[in-house]
């Protein structure tokens, strides 16, 4: 009985620790005054301010542009590469996957500075293009990791059967292989999209003047001092990412039950 009570209390305290900052952050985005500790009344004015802030709006534009382009490009390159990697020999596959894993394993700051060195070394001007390339670089590994298991589940004979029935290799991949690995491809796409949306460290090192994403904009705002506008963007971003991840998660567990039923 005492143990039960203690457990409940402990859970309560831990979850208070985990959620208090977020709840406070969100609550004060609706606060009337600039104060972040005294409640003075409900208002949506910080949300209005966010939408009028040209710096934030331009950052939002770049964030979405980056997330969409990098996710789509990474998914295309990643899926094609995964099909190739899948048919590599044992050693080639291991080496390729090990190198592919490097950006996942490396601390973001190391990936960030190494890409920055590369871009400056080849005299590319840091800006949207370098930012986009960097996002594609760290997104592809995740796409490959999501697609490969689907390829492993694939029946080896299906592709051959399609060829026997007169399909060209390109047609067979498009109409036979692709539909079967589609769940993995979509998961990879959504994962890449979310990662790109969320990235700060790598973007921070590979962007140039004039181009910022939301994370960088928030970072520079916090350096200047805290403002309820940040609370408002936080709330919006949290809700958007939450919805996205619920979708990804739903997909993943759907697949899990689907493959369990096999």
């Amino acid at each position: 009985m005492v143990k039960r009570l203690f457990e409940k209390l402990y859970l309560l305290l831990i979850f208070a620790f985990l959620y208090a900052p977020i709840v406070v952050l969100m609550a004060f985005s609706f606060n009337e005054s600039k104060s972040r500790s005294v409640w003075t009344g409900f208002s949506l004015k910080w949300y209005e301010k966010v939408f009028q802030n040209s710096e934030i709006m331009s950052a939002l534009y770049y964030t979405l542009l980056l997330a969409i382009f990098s996710a789509v490009i990474a998914t295309i390159i990643g899926t094609i590469s995964a099909i190739g990697i899948h048919s590599l020999g044992k050693w080639g596959k291991k080496l390729t996957l090990d190198i592919n894993y490097l950006p996942v394993l490396n601390p973001d700051i190391v990936t960030g500075v190494s890409l920055m060195i590369l871009f400056i070394f080849v005299k590319m001007r840091l800006g949207f293009l370098t930012l986009l390339l960097s996002h594609i670089v760290f997104n592809i590994p995740y796409v490959i990791i999501s697609v490969l298991p689907k390829l492993r589940q694939l029946d080896k004979n299906i592709y051959e059967a399609a060829l026997d029935l007169g399909a060209t290799p390109g047609y067979a991949i498009r109409r036979v292989i692709l539909p079967q690995i589609m769940p993995g491809v979509i998961t990879g796409l959504l994962l890449a999209f979310t990662l790109s949306l969320d990235d700060f460290v790598i973007s921070f090192f590979t962007t140039g003047s004039g181009v910022t994403n939301l994370s960088i904009a928030i970072y520079s705002m916090t350096r200047r001092g805290v403002s309820p506008e940040i609370n408002a963007i936080s709330t919006l971003m949290f809700v958007v990412v939450l919805v996205l991840l619920v979708v990804v998660n739903g997909r993943m567990s759907d697949e899990k039950t689907a493959s369990d039923n096999h």
Binding site: L18, Y19, A20, P21, I22, V24, L25, F28, R36, S37, D198, F200, S215, I218, Y219, T222, V226, I230, N231, S234, M237, F238, V241, L242, L245
Partner: peptide, 16 residues
């Protein structure tokens, strides 16, 4: 909470 951007999660503690 891990689904929130790390900057925002850390910023939340700044305000607290």
């Amino acid at each position: 909470p891990m689904w929130m951007n790390i900057l925002l999660r850390t910023y939340a503690w700044m305000t607290l």
